[in-house]
Simulated scan of single mutants.
Amino acid sequence: MSDENNNQDQQALADEWAAALEEQTGQAGVDADALLDDVQSQAAPSAQGVELDELQDDSVPVTDPKLDVILDIPVTLTMEVGGTEIAIRNLLQLSQGSVIELDRVAGEPLDVKVNGTLIAHGEVVVVNDRYGIRLTDVISPQERIRRLK
């Protein structure tokens, strides 16, 4: 089973390289099978997978090691109303009462960002004389990853 998965992985890698070479050179018909043969010939023939025992420290109780490590890390959550570009000359002329036009239309949802990455959209609400935001659209994790690329 492991050899079959390895061959599939190598075939997929060869196909990706063939597509990249085709895109780069503009030549159609790059032979993925020839690339696969090259990859397999360069791989060490004696390399084999080895199963290792999992290391554990029984003295430390662990509830969920995947999440416990990151749950207390602070992040910065910001709500962005809008933005604009302004020349330094105009920036220096701003005074109390100046109005700066933003690139958003009134009533348009705000961007909710965590450490600068868009995660949701929302609208401003007031709760007990404090501003808040009601989330209207949350970006899926898959979409967030796609936007990073």
Rank of each mutant, 00 (worst) to 15 (best):
S41A: 15
N90R: 08
K66P: 06
S41Q: 06
E80Q: 14
G29D: 11
V75N: 13
D38L: 05
E85A: 08
L94F: 00
I133S: 00
A47K: 09
S46I: 02
Y131F: 06
S2D: 15
A34V: 03
A47L: 11
Q40S: 05
L92Y: 01
E123N: 04
D38Y: 09
I133L: 02
D57W: 01
R89W: 01
L118Q: 13
V138W: 00
D58M: 06
S140L: 11
D9H: 03
E23R: 12
V50R: 15
T117V: 05
I73P: 11
D9P: 02
K113H: 05
G132N: 03
Q10K: 11
E23H: 07
L52N: 08
L36P: 05
I70Q: 11
V60Q: 10
E4L: 09
G116S: 03
R147K: 11
A120S: 05
I88V: 07
D15I: 05
T84S: 08
D31F: 03
T136G: 15
V50C: 09
S95Y: 02
A43N: 09
I139N: 08
D72Q: 14
G107Y: 01
P65G: 10
A28R: 08
Q42L: 10
E51L: 12
P74K: 13
S140Q: 09
G107N: 05
A34F: 04
L35A: 09
M1N: 11
I100W: 01
L21D: 09
V50D: 12
L92S: 12
E51R: 14
Q142V: 14
S41C: 02
N7T: 03
V138A: 08
Q96S: 04
D9S: 08
P141F: 06
E101P: 00
V75F: 14
G83S: 15
V39D: 05
E108L: 02
D72S: 15
L110I: 12
T84N: 11
L110F: 04
N115T: 09
R147I: 14
G82S: 15
L77F: 13
L92I: 01
T78V: 09
T117E: 05
G116D: 04
E123K: 01
A12S: 12
I73K: 09
N115A: 15
P65K: 09
T117C: 00
V138N: 00
V39P: 04
T117H: 02
L67K: 12
T76Y: 10
E123R: 06
A87H: 07
Q8D: 12
L148I: 06
A87Y: 06
Q10V: 06
D38K: 12
G107V: 11
L67M: 13
V39H: 06
D68Q: 15
P109F: 00
L91N: 08
D3M: 13
D38I: 12
G82I: 04
Q93A: 15
G29Y: 00
L110E: 06
G82Q: 08
Q48A: 13
L135Y: 01
V126C: 01
R89K: 05
D64P: 09
S140H: 07
T63Y: 07
L36S: 04
G82T: 10
R104W: 00
I145H: 05
A19S: 09
S46P: 04
A44L: 07
R147F: 08
D33F: 03
D129L: 01
V114H: 03
N7W: 02
L55C: 06
I133A: 00
S140N: 03
K113V: 08
V62L: 14
L71Y: 01
N7S: 09
L94H: 00
N90M: 08
S59T: 15
L13P: 08
T117N: 13
D33H: 05
E108K: 04
